[in-house]
């Protein structure tokens, strides 16, 4: 993996990494990817039926509505926030 590729990934995952870490990550990524690469050949040898996700987990959905009574957890949630103003969690401006 090249340094620009690793830098792009670091930006995508929102993690600051210095030059030394980027270089060592590139090496480690290559080692792990070389190891996990075996599954591509294994997957190619598996018939569609055997690789069929009949047993795979499926997502469980629920209606997009509140599930907890209002206000019960507010104080505790706000107390955990690094910065807050009354019942609002303060964040840096987005736009």
């Amino acid at each position: 993996m090249t340094l620009p590729e690793v830098q792009k990934l670091a930006d995508l995952i929102r993690i600051d990494m210095d030059q030394a870490e980027l270089e060592s990550v590139a090496r480690d990524m290559d080692a792990v990817l070389a190891y996990v690469d075996q599954i591509r050949a294994v997957a190619a040898s598996i018939s569609e039926a055997d690789g069929n996700p009949e047993l795979t987990l499926t997502n469980v959905m629920r209606a997009d509505t509140g599930t907890l009574p209002e206000g019960v957890y507010t104080d505790a949630v706000v107390a955990n926030a690094p910065e807050h103003d009354g019942n609002f969690i303060k964040v840096k401006k987005i736009l």
Partner: peptide, 28 residues
Amino acid sequence: RRRIMLGTYVLSHGYYDAYYGSAVKVQN
């Protein structure tokens, strides 16, 4: 930090089928 990066990589466009898709197939 490394594992988050690896996970993002195997889910990214162009690698998803090769890694994640293959892994799920072998898992089954």
